[in-house]
Design a protein around this nucleic acid. Structure first.
Lengths: 339, 339
DNA sequence: GCGGTTAGGACAAACGCTTGTTCATCCATA
DNA sequence: TATGGATGAACAAGCGTTTGTCCTAACCGC
């Protein structure tokens, strides 16, 4: 069928071990240059490809890592995924992609993947609310895991400068002249959510603007969550209304803009909306969304680096990806108040 | 580290082969029921998980399949992916997800994946324009491949009832009273694009409406393509303007609606838009998009069935997934003309 | 009591690879 | 002419499974 080491060895008139050493550049091997070249030439000529199972069996590691994201449709995770794949390619490692939806309680997908030795470790972007139980199951197995955008005392974590991102977004509104600024924030239990709220608060404080508790909302990351936020801010119970709003995430922002439309609120005429996370979707909303671009690609790279370090016996480090820094991308959803 | 067959064998006081046969329910095995139970009990107790590499090496197949889609962000492929994963789970097979972007000319990802024995076969949703060369490379290797939404004389293919889908969409506009109906179609080289155009033409013919060539566009599947379509239909060169348009795909439809907005054309007041493919995005456009839901999940299932059949030595079959049939989902982007 | 079944397993090989160890030359030096 | 190191490779074990074959009792009928 496919060419094996022994096929190459036979044709080259050497032993299997020599071929293996040559192709792996074993420094411990002493060999005549002519032999080395012959082996290489024949291997190429026969289109030799190392059999993954044989190698995995021998080395007892698969050379694959799992990447678990909440939702692959989400352009945010797509960018992250690209970073992971780029870094994995450099290490010659395969990436297995999975939705965290699949590790619902009762499902033992992860345990099996690790248990069968199909992957050496996981990078997990944890959906903050759900899946906690399945998640703990993995922890308990002490599998090599790197967490993204959350904190754990016992795991390596890679996070973004969420505080800075939210600060940048908020400051943009302030710079435009807004003083009545609300936050439609993320999940209240999530690390990310807390950090963004912190950045929001900081920016207001820096500008000497008093924060209103009723305008610091904790909603979530889905369109529906953004919608709820708007309904709450502009509902009948609202005594006063913000002229600008920072939304925790581009998807929630889409829902927010839509809800504003339903209420007859013009964006950006009566309400400016700025979202964290830049994705291609942002250009196609109406109006196009002003966003803060976060270094998601680099976050992916970094998490692979962390995992690889762990797999190589290194210790677990936490790491914040702050380079490149959050970048404001101005589009049509923000304007000066009353413009 | 992890439990192996021989661990179980030792504890159960039997040979390794017996354990393997018991756990695999080998019918050729004659064994005392008490022994069988003991083996099973101990295997469970020791949390035995078969080592994937060992098995793959012995069986010379990996129990994994690759799924290549153009863009994972696209909710259309997400639905497909779910179907594939559901079917794969039933067969106890792992799915490796990849973007077809990664198999650009020069990249040998697929060849390596197959060559190394990491996957047994591929399901490929082919981006119709790009990647043809890399694609041919796979073909030439005679790897087990199932194609989705395209036709090949030498491969198994799974397709949708695209004709029916476009017909349903078109008929919806006709039923609303539209007579001036345009098509912003897909790629002209793609099987899918041709079939949808066919369905469009059929529906018009059935209603006795003359088709205008200038209104039968071939654009593509991206927002930008839909936008181009609208600009062409409503550009200065246009002598007469349609009151309704069928768009080949929800993403292109989003671009189309946006372009209409830029031109000051009210949707659905002056223009009704209906798109093929239902995704969650459809509810979040403004106005919410009327779509035709296609059985993408089932398409995914079916393609796994085809691939599995091929891997089991069966012959290549083509298959059209027509169940459930295309279903119209009416939202705000369509209305009676002049309403 | 003897040959022949049959039940209940054990044995062993092979899948492809990596890696520590051994082995045969050959050349230079004493 | 021995001795001793380089040099250039071969040898062999073992990773965890699966599966065809073989072995050893017990059991049967006569």
């Amino acid at each position: 069928m496919t060419t094996t080491l022994s096929d190459v060895a036979k044709r080259a008139g050497v032993s299997v071990s020599v071929v293996s050493r040559v192709l792996n550049d074993d420094p411990a091997l002493r060999i005549r240059p002519t032999t080395r070249d012959r082996v290489r030439r024949i291997a190429k000529q026969l289109d030799y490809t190392p059999n993954f199972a044989g190698r995995a069996l021998r080395m007892s590691q698969s050379g694959a890592i799992g990447l678990i994201v909440p939702d692959m449709t989400n352009a945010i995770f797509d960018e992250l995924t690209r970073g992971v794949e780029a870094a994995a390619d450099e290490l010659n490692v395969i990436v297995l992609l999975g939705r965290s939806e699949r590790l619902q309680p009762g499902s033992d997908v992860l345990r099996r993947l690790i248990g069968e030795g199909r992957v050496d470790g996981f990078i997990i972007q944890r959906r903050d609310v759900v899946g906690a139980q399945a998640f703990e199951e993995i922890l308990e197995r002490n599998s090599p895991v790197v967490l993204i955008n959350s904190r754990s005392s016992r795991r390596s974590c890679a996070v973004l400068d969420d505080t800075g991102g939210a600060r940048t977004a908020t400051r943009h509104l302030i710079d435009l002249g807004h003083r009545d600024i609300a936050l439609i924030g993320g999940d209240q239990n999530s690390y990310t959510g807390k950090q963004r709220e912190r950045g929001f608060v900081q920016a207001l404080a820096d500008a000497g603007i008093r924060r209103r508790t009723a305008w610091t909302l904790r909603c979530g990351y889905f369109p529906e969550d953004g919608r709820r936020g708007i309904l709450q801010l502009f509902g009948p119970a609202a005594t006063r209304r913000p002229s600008g709003v920072v939304v925790a995430n581009i998807n929630a922002a889409i829902g927010a803009v839509r809800a504003a439309g339903e209420l007859g609120i013009n964006v950006p005429g009566q309400l400016s909306v700025v979202a964290v996370h830049e994705t291609w979707v942002a250009s196609y909303t109406r109006p196009p969304m002003t966003t803060v671009k976060m270094p998601l690609f680099e976050l992916g790279r970094e998490s692979v680096r962390l995992l690889h370090e762990r797999l190589s016996g290194g210790t677990a480090y936490d790491s914040m990806v702050a380079e490149p820094p959050p970048e404001l991308i101005v589009r049509g959803s923000t304007a000066a108040p009353g413009a």
